[in-house]
Simulated scan of single mutants.
Amino acid sequence: MSVDDTVLGLWDALSQRDWDAVKTFLADDCIYIDMPVGPTLAARGPDDIVKRLKVGLEALAKYENHPGLLVGNGSDVMFEHSESWAWTTGETAELPFVSVHRVVDGKVTLWKDYWDFNAILGSAPASWMDDFAGADVSWVFDATDHI
């Protein structure tokens, strides 16, 4: 599988919220970081990365990834795309993203998402941040020294 196919396959699985399929694209030591919140709240490994992704995405009524520009440089790929989020309470958000991936031997080893945290805060229901207070945070990994 090519580097591009790996990245696009990952995003297709995520768009479907097929958590088992998402894991198949991630290396055992893959690091995932939402850059707006920084490397101290990263996740490492397929199981913990999926736990982290579920915190934000699992409760949504609808989630969809819209592919855009994919630019590669060997094992490194930048993917400009957007996501549609819809909550069960009716709020919606269209979020532009740039994701940076490193792919080695057909698996993503590093995944960094760049997006505007304030854009989601302005669109999400008031209870959205409160929901994080009770979320499973067993996935937290400090990646400061790993990126």
Rank of each mutant, 00 (worst) to 15 (best):
A27H: 13
K51H: 10
K51Y: 04
W87R: 09
L41M: 14
G68K: 03
S99Y: 01
R52N: 10
E83N: 12
W139E: 01
V100F: 08
D29S: 12
W87T: 11
F141N: 03
L10N: 09
C30N: 13
S99P: 00
P36L: 03
D113W: 03
P125H: 08
L10V: 05
L57K: 01
I31M: 07
A13L: 00
P39C: 04
I120Y: 06
H146T: 08
V50E: 01
T40L: 05
G45I: 09
K23M: 11
F97E: 06
T6K: 07
G45P: 05
V137Q: 12
D145R: 14
K62L: 11
P39H: 09
I33Y: 01
S99D: 12
G90V: 09
T144Q: 13
G122C: 04
A93N: 13
T92F: 04
G72S: 15
T109R: 10
V50L: 03
M129D: 08
I49A: 02
W115Y: 13
V140S: 01
G45H: 14
L60K: 01
V140F: 10
P39V: 06
K23G: 03
L60V: 08
I147E: 09
I31D: 01
F25D: 01
H146Q: 15
M1P: 06
E83I: 02
T88H: 14
T144G: 12
W111E: 07
T6I: 13
G90L: 07
D48M: 02
P39E: 15
L95C: 02
D113L: 02
D48Y: 01
I31E: 02
R52T: 00
W85H: 14
A119N: 04
A13H: 08
P39A: 14
G106V: 12
W115P: 01
P36A: 03
N65Q: 11
M35V: 14
L121Q: 14
L53G: 08
I49C: 03
W87P: 02
M1I: 07
D130I: 07
S2H: 13
D47P: 03
L70K: 04
P36N: 05
D76G: 00
T92M: 05
H66T: 11
D34S: 15
V37F: 09
P125T: 07
M129V: 15
S99A: 13
